[in-house]
Design a protein around this nucleic acid. Structure first.
Lengths: 242, 242
DNA sequence: CTTTGAAGTTTTGCATGCATTTTTTTGTAT
DNA sequence: ATACAAAAAAATGCATGCAAAACTTCAAAG
């Protein structure tokens, strides 16, 4: 498919494992996706230099597509470009993460506003079902399932805003924050109930198609989510004596 | 103007002509900025193929940094990458522009919310002064000066949100829309008064530090701005028989 | 010991080279 | 003419080459 390209990926089989779905993806795109994952998943520590040669070997490509990907990641803010010193994985401060959460809150809040004017009754019903299912997981303290449904609800609202550019931007930012997800997906016992109540308010505002209410609730909900997550994070950091 | 740039950098002194201010800018960064300007300013028509060779000649660089810039512009959505067929300048539909305006509205609305909790009284006073100055231009029907002040006020609010990442994202989106500015900076006579009134409400909400109000006003204000601009645009398109 | 610094090594940024693919041109049959 | 096919030309995607910059190493001086 990609061709025989002798030296590198003979045994590599780029087509089967990594590129799910998309057929003819450019090397650049594939490297971009893979490198972003490497960084977001923390395989490359924050603050670490990005070793071009090693990554080229690992990905089986030359430096050209890798460096193209690095420029894009730099534009996304995942990586810093040091003049004549290559790239380094960006280290996020707590303030950085807060700033990103506020951007997410901005996008999702606006999505909620727009959704109120554009969502169909069927979609509202679908979100209601997700809500009740999530409530069940909440009652049974099934955290992973709860988070899955939670995310589905938020995505449903973003979808209902009927704005692909907004959705794409939103997803871009959530992807960048997957590296903090481990903490965001922990939830303090007392926060959980509050979050559930906020979701009830969201559903109520959505049913009444109250743009302003839903926008406000979502905004505050996201900021509180950050506060809770950062507290959890700080606590676990303290536990480690760090 | 583009400069002599013969072989490479013998007498090159990159610091003097081309890089205003910033000293050691990488070729990649400079090409990125320049190419973005070329596209946003419409020197490369929407839908047109991006001619790598010509641009390389014009910028005096090889294809490598140019192509790196193209990948970044593609990630920004200014350019589309066609497999094996290079890049083409993205053509924005009215719906695309609406979507972008909604994102801008999201960001600025959130900035307003945050600003209410973080802005200093001195900054509020500064924005008030801008407001009154803008009012003078409104009364005297001085459109360019009005728009300048208008923009300063909006930027002041974004600044007061104390979120550099938000500001950067906001500026990124406004830059991308500078190509539609010609229409956004036209304002229908009847819309002007309404916009001015909305600004009065904004200032009032800001004085009272009412996050929700300011967020709502800004959101609606931006969407109305789009509606007005797109109407103006459509009208002028009709006039041209298009 | 710590500093200095010169020579060697690696890394970086960019230009160039080359196999493919796409586009254009040209030629031929309908 | 119009449609199609073969050939030629150009553009694209990626690998590689190379000079300059940044790191190492290690020995001599303080």
């Amino acid at each position: 498919m990609t061709g025989v390209i002798l030296h590198y990926n003979e045994g590599a089989e780029p087509s089967d494992v990594n590129s799910r779905e998309r057929e003819a993806e450019s090397l650049h795109d594939e490297v971009l996706t893979r490198l972003r994952n490497v960084i977001v998943e923390g395989q490359l520590a924050p603050g670490a230099r990005v070793p071009e040669k090693e990554l080229c070997a690992e990905f089986g490509v030359s430096r050209t597509p890798l460096r193209e990907a690095l420029k894009v990641l730099a534009a996304e803010g995942l990586v810093e470009l040091l003049p004549n010193r290559g790239a380094r994985v960006r280290r996020f401060t707590e303030q950085d993460v807060r700033n990103l959460f506020e951007i997410l809150a901005a996008l999702e809040s606006a999505a909620g506003r727009l959704a109120c004017t554009r969502i169909t009754n069927a979609e509202i019903a679908a979100i209601e079902r997700l809500h009740y299912e999530m409530y069940g997981h909440y009652m049974r303290r099934e955290l992973p399932a709860y988070f899955r449904l939670n995310q589905a609800i938020h995505l449903g609202i973003v979808d209902a805003a009927r704005n692909p550019a907004l959705k794409e931007t939103y997803e871009g930012f959530t992807a960048r924050m997957r590296q903090f997800r481990y903490s965001a997906n922990t939830i303090a016992r007392d926060r959980w109930g509050e979050a559930m109540r906020e979701h009830e308010l969201m559903l109520d505002a959505l049913r009444r198609r109250s743009s302003e209410e839903l926008g406000s609730i979502l905004f505050d909900h996201l900021l509180k989510k950050f506060e809770a997550a950062s507290q959890t994070l700080r606590r676990s950091a303290d536990d480690n004596g760090q």
